[in-house]
Simulated assay, not measured.
Amino acid sequence: MRQTLSTLRKTLANGRKLSMLTCYEASFAQVMDAAGIDCLLVGDSLGMVVQGRDSTLAVTVEDIAYHTANIARGSRKAFLLADMPFGSYHESPAQAMRSAVRLMQAGAQMVKLEGGAELEGIVRQFVHAGIPVCAHVGLLPQHVHAIGGFRVQGKAQSDADRILHDAQVLEAAGAAMVLVEGVPEGLGRRIAETSHAITIGIGASVACDGQVLVMQDMLGLNASPARFVKDFTKDLPAGEGGIIERAFRQYAEEVADGRFPAAAHVYGLSGDDAAAYGGQRPATPPAA
């Protein structure tokens, strides 16, 4: 039976965190299902890791729809999200709805939007139409040129306040999930601890309800990985077969019990906080 928002919330209520990976083809979707990955994201990261581009900006709705349909056929258990690519929801509410409907009809159970409070109206429109929404705040890859590269966001107090406000506004508009990317740990923790939505971190905080990584990154295929990446193939014993499935399973287990992310995979912890990290909440969470 495929996961739903309801079953994901029950998993969290039972004290287990959620694992999410990007996925672009049916064969990997099958292996992720077998390994117990909770959520699969058809990310616009495919522009970089599948199409060989230097950003996500050239990815189209049809690209995402094609890969979403592949994943929907290949998986039977995991919850399936699809990215709304750059330019697919900015022109008008009608354009945004057409794009979202296309992805839902391809098999997505939720669409993900990058942006802040300016997307409040679109989120409300989607939720009213029965389209579940994941808001994406913090580092926004679709804004790479505007922010001057893939840089940690929210280091200044004013920026941290804005990102926290973005998350709160989009949750109030109806976003059932909030993905927090590339922010200092204290800000990621504050968003997670004040949100009633499901929070997913990537370079944010272990306090989030779950974590996401790009599949190719966690399999060690990126020669220059970001700080928040861990290669889950490195320490697996040889000769036992199924190394990719075992890497996925190891990732799911480490996310579930709070071992990942460790202090080495987040930004902005002090020495004392880093020493207490790894599933244990710092005695005094750092200010955002």
Score class of each variant (00 low, 15 high):
residue 4 T to N: 05
residue 8 L to D: 10
residue 8 L to S: 09
residue 10 K to D: 12
residue 22 T to I: 05
residue 22 T to R: 04
residue 27 S to L: 13
residue 37 I to R: 03
residue 42 V to R: 04
residue 46 L to N: 02
residue 46 L to Y: 00
residue 47 G to H: 05
residue 50 V to T: 11
residue 54 D to V: 15
residue 55 S to G: 15
residue 55 S to F: 08
residue 59 V to G: 13
residue 64 I to G: 03
residue 71 I to K: 09
residue 71 I to A: 10
residue 74 G to L: 13
residue 76 R to G: 13
residue 80 L to R: 15
residue 82 A to T: 09
residue 87 G to N: 01
residue 89 Y to W: 09
residue 92 S to P: 01
residue 94 A to M: 13
residue 100 A to T: 04
residue 101 V to M: 14
residue 129 A to L: 10
residue 136 H to A: 03
residue 147 I to P: 04
residue 151 R to K: 14
residue 153 Q to W: 00
residue 156 A to P: 05
residue 157 Q to L: 04
residue 160 A to M: 06
residue 162 R to T: 02
residue 166 D to I: 02
residue 172 A to R: 11
residue 176 A to H: 02
residue 178 V to L: 07
residue 178 V to E: 01
residue 183 V to I: 14
residue 183 V to L: 14
residue 185 E to P: 02
residue 186 G to D: 01
residue 187 L to W: 05
residue 191 I to D: 04
residue 192 A to T: 06
residue 197 A to W: 08
residue 197 A to R: 02
residue 198 I to L: 11
residue 204 A to T: 03
residue 207 A to S: 07
residue 208 C to Q: 00
residue 209 D to C: 05
residue 212 V to L: 12
residue 215 M to H: 14
residue 221 L to V: 05
residue 222 N to M: 15
residue 226 A to E: 12
residue 229 V to W: 13
residue 230 K to I: 11
residue 238 A to R: 07
residue 240 E to A: 11
residue 245 E to F: 11
residue 248 F to L: 15
residue 248 F to A: 14
residue 260 F to G: 00
residue 261 P to S: 11
residue 261 P to Y: 12
residue 264 A to W: 02
residue 268 G to F: 07
residue 273 D to G: 10
residue 277 Y to H: 08
residue 280 Q to M: 09
residue 282 P to E: 03
residue 286 P to Y: 07
